[in-house]
Design a protein around this nucleic acid. Structure first.
Lengths: 148, 148
DNA sequence: ACTAATAGTTAGAATGTCTAAGTATGAGTG
DNA sequence: CACTCATACTTAGACATTCTAACTATTAGT
């Protein structure tokens, strides 16, 4: 509980410093998050995408619509289930998100470079635990509480 | 650089899981962030608040306006400089954000409880380094690059 | 073939965000 | 002291993100 009190606000602040739009990139946080997800996991159904992004389906529809207009993702009809839509990243989307991620990593690396060796070592050691934490959240403990 | 590649996306994902509105709290992420800042630092000028929140002044104006309407913060004229406005949290705002923070911490603690002792130990050890990282970002190295 | 459930979209509203332009006050200079 | 410039903020206008509620289309179960 004490750890939660210390760590949670920090994570919130860390995010705020990462979220800022990199100058010259006219892509929003929601958009880059969707592109990153599609990059990591391949094409997804609209509903799956919404769950992973932690938003409702209409939100996913709208973000995807803008990305389609930008030519960064494409909507593909699912032959198995004609109600469903698969959302996949395009070559252009893939190229763009790779560049963006590289730039953000570089900027973050500049900050990390200003820490001490010891601090970096401690952060590195905590990476697997953080990954575990994130994995726990994506797969809720009780399948019933996925939806309100 | 390798650390940046591993850590930065994780932090983004961790934030996504924290940001979700706790049920029953009809306060947005931007609003609770402002309240937390005012709670931590006391009354601030509109411009300082914008810098800390990482947004432009009109955004701060608009978020504060809504919080004023909700009775959670108040605008106080600065006697020293009549152009300036001090934004302070009200008793009601303070009570509300305390409850909200407690609830979020409790939810986050539930997740942490599902990690191993070793994982928690590693996270705990990384807290000061993260705090340093956040502090570095708020105070940019070159005063000139605060503004583009 | 009805009826139910599922997958998405559309409509409409609120919030958050930005840039550009405006207002009001403070500070410096001749 | 008046003029000008800088500072602190607000207003206007645009667009993105997000939600809930209601709709359409397809699938599945009797």
């Amino acid at each position: 509980m004490e750890l939660s009190r210390q760590l949670r606000p920090l994570l919130t602040r860390v995010y705020q410093m990462v979220r800022r739009r990199s100058p010259g990139w006219d892509i929003s946080a929601a958009q880059s998050s969707v592109l990153t997800t599609l990059m990591d996991r391949g094409a997804l159904r609209m509903g799956e995408l919404a769950v992973i992004e932690g938003v409702r389906m209409p939100t996913a529809t709208s973000v995807v619509a803008r990305l389609v207009k930008l030519g960064l993702v494409e909507r593909i009809a699912d032959p198995q289930d004609r109600r469903a839509v698969l959302v996949g990243i395009t070559a252009r989307g893939s190229a763009q998100i790779s560049e963006l991620v590289a730039e953000r990593n570089a900027r973050f690396a500049e900050l990390l470079a200003r820490l001490s060796d010891e601090e970096r070592r401690l952060l590195r050691a905590a990476v697997p635990a953080m990954a575990h934490l994130v994995a726990l959240d994506i797969a809720p403990k009780d399948p019933a509480d996925t939806e309100l």
